[in-house]
Amino acid sequence: MAPISVHSELLSPNYKDYIEGGLLRRMSKILRMSVACAKDSLQQAKLDQPDSIVVGTGLGCLQDTEKFLNTFLTVEGLLPPTSFIQSTHNTIAGQISLSIGNHGYNMTHTQNTLSFEHALIDTELLLQESDYQVLVGAADEHIDFLDQVKTELDLVLPVALTSGASFFVATRDRGDAARGQIVGIEAFGMVENIHDRIGSFLDEHKISATSLDLVLFAGADIAVCETVLASLTQAGVREDQILDYLSYSGIYPTSSAFALHLALDQFKLNTSYRYILVCNCLNRNNLGLILVESVEA
């Protein structure tokens, strides 16, 4: 896998393998990505119907939101409703449930950079309650307008703004197909002391920083990056064990879902790995932590 560059393009599957042609034509990028990922992960888990569908999205269906803004601000008279219908955040989880005919719990979390972590916390609750299998994922889409906003607001970002969708099947019992186990999730809004928060999270799960094999880190604010990197290295994590996942995913609010996928792939590549921490500081006021354990261990 190569880091993204200015020449990078969004990797897309052959959507027709997952979505019927007529439906596909009406779907925006975020809906295509999400429905295809959701179906692919269900196929991998050999599951027809999950008990629940839980989605996180930071900015939702931007393409259709922009389209409907354009429509009602410029068109007189009767307006076509499709872009309005598809502009709401819950369209993603809704389209997944429609595409597989699922009548279970259906939820959409939208807490900017912590949207995916909140979806995972909900999933954890569901599996503690009565669910056995939950489809959980996250998606955000890039529109060109975002680059203009970035320039106008003088936002300095380390890598490009991009799109992404990642879906997972989370189960109560560890099946043969299990790729990893989530040990702990934290979504902390308005965080004041990131160093202490990471420390207490690891303590709570009885893991020392030295037993982390890899830390997948994201940060856009230089001061925050320095704080976190200093606190991790002081706690015994080697610098070469810290990987900036944004250089592979690009920036979008739910890129920590990409990092979870990357963590699961790392377990496959490095069978000696036991613990990977996803440390999401993309927004300096929000701290997201996902601790994943290898199923081989």
Binding site: M107, T110, Q111, F188, G189, M190
Partner: peptide, 22 residues
């Protein structure tokens, strides 16, 4: 998410701050 963060900030709530949109 921002709409909720603003409410949370005014009430001094930190930690679990979440927004649903269904």
């Amino acid at each position: 998410g921002n709409t909720t963060e603003r409410i949370a900030a005014a009430l001094g709530i930190t930690g679990y701050i979440n927004t649903l949109s269904t």
